[in-house]
């Protein structure tokens, strides 16, 4: 089982308990343990008994802000536990006018980065009976004894290159901040692909995208995919065919990624949700990188007041094509 920091959980529970039982909010979005110690799933807490299940550990990767779109239909005001990426997701929805700030209480949780159970299993050589954590290391408990690994090495891909682990928006910060992280490597895979000849790059994407099942988990998990009707479902004109043809794969993935230009918060939920491990963040990050290069540094979701780069312009903007 995963050793949880019970002190932290207590702090979190106490904080939300006051608001929930005091009637300020009618529901708290948090996490509870799933079937296994390496799963924490969303919890929709409305009572003190529900709050008993509340957890905060290294497997709370699921971004909760996305649920606000549905939950605010049934609730006047809800509380949400937000990691760095959940808070940026909230800001995104705020910018799209999909949520109202006064309808939500954000409880900030500085995030140490979530762990990837596949990596834990791999390091342990089997399914460990549990883990313990200690100051940047993870202790894997296996039949053959304990094994210590660096936390960095067993984190989820989406967390490895996270720059802003602390919530950028919150009403109440519950634990001590992690501080900004350096993520020098976040554009490295993009740069490697950019360096390839065009045909090779096309072949790479053709192969990666060929696995796509069109389950749309990437879209459903994504905080920038908040359209009421997605282009995929539009009937007239019918942009997205249902066939599993290469051209349809490209259509979906290029348009999905492009819709995130200046809006993707790089939370990596798309990639984490993909059942066939398509490297979706490489597409998203390409757009982040280009927008930064062309129109100045911008991190979506960091500041709800900042103007998204595709919603504005300057007369002297550079272009990625010849303007002669």
């Amino acid at each position: 089982m995963a050793e949880r920091n019970l002190d932290n959980i207590k702090i979190i529970r106490e904080a939300v308990k006051q608001d929930l039982l005091g009637g300020r909010i009618s529901q708290v979005l948090g996490w509870e343990k799933g079937h296994y110690w390496w799963q924490s799933r969303p919890l929709f807490a409305r009572s003190e008994a529900d709050l008993e299940k509340l957890t905060w550990d290294s497997f709370c990767g699921i971004n909760l802000s996305r649920y606000l779109l549905e939950e605010l239909k049934d609730h006047e005001k809800v509380g949400v536990l937000v990691k760095g990426c959940d808070a940026r997701a909230f800001n995104r929805l705020l910018q799209d006018n999909m949520v109202k700030r006064e309808q939500v209480i954000l409880y900030g949780l500085p995030c140490p980065g979530m762990l990837d159970y596949n990596r834990l299993f791999e390091e342990a050589g089997a399914v460990p009976s549990g883990i313990a954590e200690n100051n940047g290391t993870v202790i894997l408990k296996t039949g053959g004894g304990d094994r210590e690994v660096k936390r960095e090495d067993v984190m989820l891909d989406k967390c490895r290159e996270c720059v802003y682990p602390d919530p950028a928006a919150y009403d109440q910060m519950l634990l001590s901040p992690q501080g900004e992280r350096k993520a020098a490597g976040r554009f490295k895979p993009v740069e490697e692909l950019e360096a390839m000849p065009a045909d090779e790059r096309f072949a790479y994407w053709d192969k990666e995208l060929s696995r796509c099942l069109r389950c749309y988990a990437c879209r459903q998990a994504c905080p920038f995919c908040s359209c009421r009707e997605c282009f995929v479902e539009q009937e007239s004109p019918r942009w997205q065919g249902r066939a599993y043809q290469p051209s349809e794969n490209f259509m979906f993935h290029l348009v999905r990624a492009y819709h995130g230009t200046g809006r993707c918060i790089d939370c990596g939920e798309c990639e984490r949700s993909c059942p066939v491990n398509i490297p979706l963040q490489e597409l998203n990050r390409k757009l982040i990188k280009d927008i930064n290069e062309l129109y100045g540094d911008y991190e979506a979701g960091l500041d709800a007041e900042a103007e998204p780069p595709l919603l504005t312009y300057r007369p002297d903007d550079p272009a990625a094509f010849s303007e002669k």
Binding site: Y258, L294, P309, P318
Partner: peptide, 13 residues
């Protein structure tokens, strides 16, 4: 702005 980002994405593909 939009087509600059899109052009680069198309090339990236």
């Amino acid at each position: 702005r939009r087509l600059s980002a899109f052009k680069r994405l198309v090339e990236f593909a």
